[in-house]
């Protein structure tokens, strides 16, 4: 059970990394306040969200304060 839970957290994290990489590679670089591609920047934002959620799940699961 515990290993399956860990796999879910790892999957969430990896999904975030993939979305982040695709977003970063497909969009032109943002120059100052001028936005790049909507799709690329959206993928970066969603990817980072998944990465942070995955790390958070792991930290909650590992319960490091105990």
């Amino acid at each position: 059970m515990a290993s399956r839970t860990l796999l879910v957290y790892a999957g969430l994290f990896l999904l975030g990394l993939v979305l982040l990489a695709v977003g970063a590679l497909t969009q032109p670089y943002r120059v100052g306040a001028t936005p790049g591609s909507e799709v690329g920047e959206s993928l970066v934002a969603i990817g980072l969200t998944f990465v942070i959620l995955g790390i958070g799940y792991f930290l909650a699961w590992a319960n490091p304060t105990q």
Binding site: A33, P35, E41, I46
Partner: peptide, 24 residues
């Protein structure tokens, strides 16, 4: 402003960071 729907998802990222820290 000049941004499209990426602002919505950047806002999602912002509030996820808040929620993750609050929940932990």
């Amino acid at each position: 402003g000049l941004n499209g729907v990426q602002a919505l998802f950047a806002n999602l990222l912002w509030h996820s960071i808040y929620g993750v820290n609050l929940g932990l």
